[in-house]
Design a protein around this nucleic acid. Structure first.
Lengths: 346, 346
DNA sequence: ATTAGCACTCATTAATGATGAGTGCTAATA
DNA sequence: TATTAGCACTCATCATTAATGAGTGCTAAT
């Protein structure tokens, strides 16, 4: 079907042009700037067809066309070309990461800033989830009175910590005893400490210690299973002002307000955790407030397992080729950094 | 001088009116709505005087007047009335704080959100500085290889922690030995560990231990003296869109961009750390980008010592009476919460 | 010293018309 | 039969103009 090829060549041209200019694209523009060897009149006819197919939209009767969300989806699935990011850029990122060895959260934050700098878009990142990881070591540090610091170290070398409050005073010795006990059965955490070791060793503790243990276990579940210590960051929230489609204050405000919510960021980054690179275009987004935006997310890994994700948010006419290339390169670089600095085999 | 009293009564009325409406105030408005017993013509004459004194500004020749920054300064210094915040509000805040016992950072974040909710303004907060505090306890926890978690507990019960990387591998035993040693001379931290104890005990360590110790001390200085673990949060960044003076996109963008910078928040909150309540009006702000805003900050305390600060940012025509009342009430409530949950006498 | 009266200023809004980019349709063409 | 040239038509955008009205400064009367 020669005719179809031509249609999509026109569609492709229109999309590329609109991504670049943010202006509705007319038939003469295509004729002049893209050498398709056909006249504007023919292009007009094809454009009318493409509109019937739901791939183009006309803002008003006598204007050029803009691509629909469906068109972007087709573009992303069939026409998008991913390329390598220049190596000196990656080199700079590596150098930056080296400055944050031992400050995982800072490195993740820096990742957001780099994404923004490279794409001129809002970037979202989340710190690693530990839910899927195996615990290597649990420590309890007595602060004073009934306060203690709980530290969880995973086999992958990720460290999480949180202060916990017990119902009664305790001391260093008591916590040490419980710590030893806890580490004897860390394997039981995923199945509610039902492991054999648990009930056996339980008898070695007196009743007060058992009570404290129960509270500690609750805290561990909170931080480990709910992953209460996972944090999200956004950078470049004001980048949106650079784009003419958001020159309407009300539109910009709506998106901005949405992206300021922690749980929204969390949702966007968690939604597509297991699908590698994920792209949500315009109305594909669950939340109506983001129907004029596209969200590109990707997971980063440790020892081959996804442990967190990063993403960018921009207008639906974002440069998908470039953005996806960048986000791929960044996750790859981050993966490398994590395996270099955290190590720990599965 | 009866004449001066009248002038300032007019000025006061104009400020109150402008704070409420954001519209330039004309002489007839004052005559009708504020019973000053004088005609609009007389008010006009006085207004011309007030303009000569630099207290009023006329946006254009035939418009009403708006207060100058100088007028707000006079208002804040002389006319402002601080009142109590309704007790049920405080009660709600207390209840909320109770949910975050043991999660100091969360409580501070919640404070920002409450400030935003109460004032409809952007709120800024910072977590406690520990620079002025005395260290009670230092712990080193071995993670794996050359990685360790440093935990600092102050006498005031504040806990800070950071991962550190040593230049060579270590183990649990070695770190325990160093920990014992460190705690013997925690008092020396403020004067570079020059204390007598330090050099004496130093001899008890072998050369590798001494090397590790030096690295740990450097890390402690970083987290303790530079207070590398102090965090800042902003909430309600999009509140600015509610105010007509920022309906100009460019203006709003500038302020928004400025308030998104961590170090800007840090600067604003640190600038006036020792002066209790601090109010910066319009061009009194160090940064040109905030010349259309006012910033109200206040310090919160532990055992009578300021350890951090909170603040709000809004248009210069903010309701100073109410805002200052709210921020006073909030610091007081936060102070109480901290002393209740952290305790620890000086 | 105060106020009524009036001419004047200027932002805001609505109405009007010109411009131009871009279309759809028709008839001519290869 | 597919393509293209030609043309009437649509509609957003922009500049111009005029009307409106809030508010002032100044002068003369009280």
């Amino acid at each position: 079907m020669k005719s179809d090829d031509r249609k999509f060549a026109i569609l492709y041209s229109i999309i590329r042009d609109y991504i670049r200019t943010a202006e509705p694209v007319g038939s003469r523009t295509i004729e002049k700037n893209y050498n398709l060897g056909i006249s504007s009149a023919t292009i007009r006819n094809e454009m009318a067809d493409l509109e019937d197919m739901g791939l183009l939209v006309q803002p008003h009767a006598s204007s050029g066309r803009i691509p629909s969300d469906k068109a972007y989806r087709m573009y992303v699935n069939n026409f998008m070309k991913i390329s390598d990011v220049e190596s000196y850029v990656i080199e700079n990122v590596r150098t930056l990461y080296d400055k944050y060895v031992g400050q995982l959260n800072k490195a993740i934050e820096a990742t957001a800033e780099i994404l923004t700098k490279l794409t001129n878009l809002t970037a979202l990142v989340m710190t690693p989830h530990i839910t899927q990881m195996d615990i290597k070591d649990i420590r309890l540090i007595h602060i004073e009175g009934e306060r203690a610091l709980l530290v969880i170290i995973t086999k992958q070398g990720i460290v999480k910590n949180a202060e916990i409050r017990l119902n009664s005073k305790t001391d260093k010795k008591q916590l040490e005893k419980i710590t030893v006990f806890l580490n004897m059965c860390v394997d039981g955490i995923n199945n509610d400490f039902e492991a054999e070791n648990f009930s056996i060793a339980m008898e070695a503790l007196n009743s007060q210690e058992q009570r404290i243990l129960a509270e500690v276990v609750a805290a561990i579940k909170n931080i480990y299973q709910q992953d209460a210590d996972t944090k999200v960051y956004a950078s470049g929230l004001t980048e949106i002002f650079k784009y003419p489609e958001f020159k309407d204050m009300e539109k910009a405000r709506k998106v901005l307000e949405t992206l300021h919510k922690q749980d929204m960021i969390s949702y966007l980054l968690t939604e597509a955790m297991d699908s590698g690179i994920n792209i949500k275009i315009g109305n594909e987004n669950t939340f109506e407030e983001l129907n004029d935006c596209s969200v590109v997310t990707a997971t980063y890994k440790l020892n081959g397992r996804p442990i967190g994700s990063i993403g960018i948010v921009g207008p639906t006419r974002m440069d998908y080729d470039y953005c996806v290339s960048v986000i791929k390169a960044m996750t790859k670089t981050l993966d490398k950094h994590l395996s270099d600095t955290l190590g720990g085999k599965d």
